[in-house]
Each structure stands twice: as C-alpha cells, then as structure tokens.
Design a protein around this nucleic acid. Structure first.
Lengths: 232, 232
DNA sequence: AAGGTTACTTGATATTTATCAAGCGGTTTA
DNA sequence: TAAACCGCTTGATAAATATCAAGTAACCTT
C-alpha cells in the first residue's frame, strides 16, 4: 500500500480502537487497488485469500447455480465483504465483480486472523462487521420470502430514496438487470413492476427515479423496521 | 445453572480453548433451562438479553411481516442462535419457539460481550459461530432465489437423509407446515411437491420418508456444494 | 454521424405458486 | 362414543412470475 493512502484507511471504522501496531501490520500486508468496471475480483468456491474493504465505487456479490445467477448484495463505500470466509479460512461463498470503477483495500486473510487473535478491539470491530453482514442477509431472506416482487421494489425505492437524501429523486446504482437479480426477479418482471408503480407516483427516466407520492408508495411497500431499517 | 450440568456444557465447541475463568464466569451467569414444546422463547424486535445454545430438542426461528410468517431456520443440538443480536447489543431479528421439549443454555448478552472482550479464544469461537450462521443464511437466500419449490424440497430431503445416516429413510423433524415455511412455500404446495417426487422414489408416510432412488432425486435436486454442503 | 451492440421494454404465453374451499384421517375432548 | 379439532391432502381457480419473441431506445465505437 502506498504511504499517501494510509491516513484515509486509518479512519475506517474497522480500525477504530485497534492498536497502532495492529493497524500497521494489517496495512503493511495489504493492497489498495483500483479496478475498472466489470472486473471479477473473486470467484465463489476459491480459497478466501483476501478480506475486502470497498473505499470507492461499487461491488456486486453474486452466486451461480448452473445456468442461473443471483445477485446477493451490492456493496458500497465504506463497507466490506468476505469477512466470514476469511475468518473461517474457507472458500468464498459468493463471486464479486466491480459494477463501476472502484478502489478496494485487500487485506490478506492470514493478517486478518492474526490481528483478530492479537487485538481484542479489532476482533470486536471485525465481528461487528460480520454481524452486520449477517443481519443484512437475514433481512434479505425475509424480504424475499415474505414479499411479492412489487413490494420488494417499492421497499427498495423507499430505502434508496432515504439513503440518497430523501429529495424526491434517486438514481439506481446499477443496471436494471442487476437490480432485478438483487430483488429476486427477472428484468422483464422489474420493468412491469416499475410500470405498476407508475400509478403511485414513480416516474422512471433511465436510471433516474422520481417519487412524487411517498405515502402512497409506503402503502404498497408496507415497510417494517425489522426488515427495512438499515440500523437494525 | 446447576452444578451437575457443568461438565456437559463445558464440552461445547463454543468453550473449547476458552480459559477456565472465562467459562466459569459465563456459566455462573447463565441459565440451563428446559422448555416444553411450542413455547416462544424470544420475540423479534425485543432487546437481545440472551444468547442461546440448544442442547436438546429443536428450536424454530421465524419472522413476521403483517399477517405473514416465515420460518428462517430450524436449530438443533448443538448449535446456537442470536449471536449477532447479542454481540451488537441490539434487538432480536427473529422470534424463536420450541418445536419440541428442549433444553437450552441461556447466556446473558452482557456476559457474552465481556467474555468476547476478555478472552481471545472465546472471541474466535464465538465469531466462528457467527460466521457459520451467516453462511447458512446466505445459502438459504441463494437456495430461495435460484431454485423452484420442488428443487428446494428435493435438496432438503437429500441433506436430511445424509444428516440422519443415509439409511434410505429419514424422519421430518417438524410438522409439514413448518417445513413448508422453512422451504418458502405454502403447505398445500409442499403436499403437491411431495406428490411430484413420488415418481422419483420418495414415499411419504406421515413424517417418515423413504428414499428409494437417490440418484434420480439428485437429478431433480441438482445439488451444488456451495449451497448444499453444510461444511462449506 | 453511421452502424452495431446492448439494455430495456412490451406483448403473448407458459409455468410456478398461492388462495380458497372441501374433505379425509387421526387425536383429543367432552 | 360422538363431537370437535387439527394437520394434511386434494381439487378448482386465481395470482404471481418466468419465458420466449419482437421491438425500441440508449450507448458505444469507429
């Protein structure tokens, strides 16, 4: 890792509380790498050599089963992936590709496990990161099992709207086919779902979405904190 | 906790490697409780006071959204739940009820966090437990998104068949309606899916299932290690 | 700016899954 | 023993979702 990037990286929540020495050792062994769009960073079923922290850009995590493919998550700054695989010293469960040009911190699994064993504060921060990923995934499972496609889309829009500042507008971070896969539907079905939401103030212009009837959208979405509040 | 139960509890993988003092402190504060069937142990959205280890019996974890309900997991000995909620000192994401009479070790969240901070070996074991739960959930999500109802059932049967000794027979651990909810379908649909699998050597007698054509069932199920191998 | 590729949309249709309603068989309860 | 209940199954139907096939619009690329 280059010297000039160190200050930025040190402010990561993952390193908050960790000893100077721990951070030093971790960063010494790490790579701060820039990748172009559509590059596959890791492939499922491979040994988990690195733990990844997304600093800039956007990463898609996905799984394959035969000819089918499903997007499991979209990771945006500052967040991480592959925590479980690295801690277990096992294999990746998901593949990862850049959605757009991205800057990523790659920490060797061996270093992570050493820091985990040697620094209680880092262990806590890392485990909390893992716990967050777990809860996000559990919510995604509930979302998938308890809701229809339109409800999932409506909730996604409401959440993204919040994340992007609740201005009445939002921009999809990915192509619609990726969003469709994330939401567990085909892209045709996503198109039609957007069509159905048009009657409730959802105006789609390419990737830009305008929401003119939040309340109406909420009656469709029926959001519940347990699934939809990111803080939970 | 009663003295006579201590030896049993000390052999738990969760405590392997932890110092004598850590285990002592944890157990001192814990309760080893026996519950009858169909008792709700925790309710989603409540403060996560306890971390649970299932020693005997069977626990169902489930989520509600309005009138709908979905079984997220069936926890059997020796395994745990609520690790993430307790570590974060947050709220439970799922409700839990006993499927049958069960014996459960309840460890106060405060004690868990103290042990995590003070004992690196315990921290590692606890985080690995969390990582396992995370990966199981991610596999469940992929299972749900990438497969049809019949495929999910076929894979469930194959896996349960393995777990129960691969004798050609297996017994469902829960009522069929619970299984249906776990597999993300209605109980009517489960009935029909069993019906469809009859042509592939699946004979159903109440909760007892006989599999006479494993190979045929596998061509239906198309299992892949990344989703179906519990060791992954 | 032209051409080609790709993403997206739309329509028609098929498949999957859920819902509603009834009935069956076993167990519990009065 | 009869009645009530519960889990499960089965049938008929409806809703949700996927698939297949064009067509359109957006975007590269040259």
């Amino acid at each position: 890792m280059r010297q000039e990037d160190a200050p930025l990286v040190r402010t990561l929540p993952l390193f908050a509380g960790a000893s100077e020495m721990t951070v030093e050792k971790l960063l010494q062994a790490s790579f701060l790498q820039r990748f172009p769009a559509q590059v596959e960073l890791i492939s499922e079923d491979q040994p988990a050599d690195f733990f990844y922290v997304v600093l800039e850009g956007c990463i898609e995590l996905f799984a394959n089963a035969g000819p089918k493919q499903s997007t499991a998550a979209i990771v945006r700054p500052v967040s991480s992936f592959a925590a479980a695989a690295v801690l277990r010293d096992g294999n990746y469960l998901l593949s990862a590709r850049t959605v757009e040009q991205s800057r990523v911190l790659m920490i060797p699994g061996e270093s992570v496990r050493a820091a985990f064993a040697g620094d209680a504060a880092f262990a806590k921060a890392f485990a909390l990161e893992l716990a967050s990923a777990y809860r996000r995934t559990m919510k995604a499972l509930n979302n998938q099992k308890l809701r229809t496609a339109i409800e999932r889309l409506a909730n996604y829009l409401l959440q993204e709207h919040q994340t992007q500042g609740a201005t009445g507008n939002l921009t999809l971070p990915t192509e619609k086919q990726t969003l469709a896969s994330l939401l567990g539907m085909t892209s045709e079905n996503l198109s039609r779902s957007f069509g159905a939401l048009a009657a409730h103030g959802v105006k789609v212009t390419g990737r830009d979405i305008q929401l003119s009837d939040i309340a109406g959208l909420e009656t469709i979405a029926k959001p519940i904190p347990l699934i939809d509040d990111p803080a939970y």
